[in-house]
Design a protein around this nucleic acid. Sequence first.
DNA 1: TCGCACACTTGACCTATGTTAAGAAATGAA
DNA 2: TTCATTTCTTAACATAGGTCAAGTGTGCGA
Lengths: 194, 194
Amino acid sequence: MTAPTDHKLIYYIKKWVKNISEDDEKLILSAFEPITVKKKKDLLEPDETCKYIYFVIKGCLRSYYVDAKGIEHIYQIRLDNSWISDLESFFSQRPSKYYLETLEDSQLLRVSYERLEQLYDEVPKLERYFRILFQKAYINALERLNATMWESAVDRYNDMLKEHGDIFQRVPLVYIASYLGITPESLSRIRKKH
Amino acid sequence: MTAPTDHKLIYYIKKWVKNISEDDEKLILSAFEPITVKKKKDLLEPDETCKYIYFVIKGCLRSYYVDAKGIEHIYQIRLDNSWISDLESFFSQRPSKYYLETLEDSQLLRVSYERLEQLYDEVPKLERYFRILFQKAYINALERLNATMWESAVDRYNDMLKEHGDIFQRVPLVYIASYLGITPESLSRIRKKH
DNA sequence: TCGCACACTTGACCTATGTTAAGAAATGAA
DNA sequence: TTCATTTCTTAACATAGGTCAAGTGTGCGA
C-alpha cells in the first residue's frame, strides 16, 4: 500500500473535503479492506443483505435486477474511481433486489455498514464527504431521469458517448442498451445511422 | 412559534438523527427563516442562482424547466413536510435551469447556502441528517428512473396513486402527467380505463 | 485450431404513447 | 349569475422503439 496521502481513495475524498488530518486519513484507510475480484463474479445477489459499500480502484462493475419475465435491467455501470453498492439494502440493512457483478477483474476497497457508521462518528469529515457524494449522485440521477423521460434514445446515446465514452471501450453493448433504457436491437439501429 | 421540540422541522430531523441537544435545536431553528408565499409565485427562475433550500411546512410546490419547444417538464412536486430546492444550482452556487413555483399558498422555512455551510460546522448532527436525506432522495430517484425506463405509463400511474394519492387531490392532472413523463392526453386515456 | 458461446446486426411487423385539433366541464373573477 | 379561462377529455392519425426471428461475426477454452 502507498503512503496514505498518495492513496487514490484519499485523493478523491480530498477533492471535495478540505483539511483532512493525517490521523483521519489513517483511520479511513484502516477501515477499508482491499479486495480483488475476478471478472463475472457476484458481490451481491437478490435476497442477500448488502453488507458493503465499494470503492472501485480499478475495474468495472454493474448493478442490475431481473424482472418477472427474466429480463435484466441495468441501473448502474461503474469504472475506476467511483463508488458502487445497493444503497437501498445497505442503509436499511434489509434484503436486496439487485445483483452486483464485476465485468472485469477488479481491485476494490470495501467498508461494512457497521464500520462506516462508527467511522462517521470518528471522522465527521468523512460524513461530509458522503453527504456531498450523495448530493451529487442525487442530482445525476435526476438528470438521467429527465433525459429518459424527455429525450430520444438517439440523444441519450450521444450524450453517453460524449460523457462516458470510455464505457463503450470496456462494456458490451447489450449492457449499455439496458443502461440507456432501450433494447440491444434499438441501440444497434441507432449506431448504424452513426 | 411553538417550543423548539414541538417544531415540525425538528420533529422530522429527529426521525432520522437521534440525540439532538436543545442547543442544537435552537441553533437550527434560528438559522431557518419562516416565509409565507402566495399561490403561483416563483421562488426561482432560470438564470438565477438558487440561494435557498426550502422546507415545506404547509403548501405545495413544483420545480420544472421549459425546453426549446416551450414545453414545461416537471421533475418535482412537493407537499407538506418535505424539502425542495434546485440542488444543482444551490450547491454549485451557479445559475439554475429551473423554475421553482408554489401551486398553493405556502408556509416555508428557508436557509441560505452560506448559513447552511456554517451550520454544518456548528451542528454536525444536521450534516448527518442531510447525508441521510440525500441518500434517500438518491435511492428514490433511482427507483423513479427504473419505473420510467421499464414500467408502462399505466403502472406508473397506479404506483403514484397508491404512494402519493394526496397529490391527486391538490395538483392539476397536467402537472401530474408531466411528472409521470407522459402527455395529459395519455393520462386522461389511462384514467378512463380506471 | 476447432467449435461453440457470446456479441452484435438486420428485417418485418406491432404497440404504446405522442401529436394535433376540437370541444366539454369546471373554476373563479366581475 | 355570467363569461372567460383553465382543466380535462376524446378521436384520428403518426411514430419511436419494442418484439420476434433469423442471421453473421468473433474470441476463448478444450
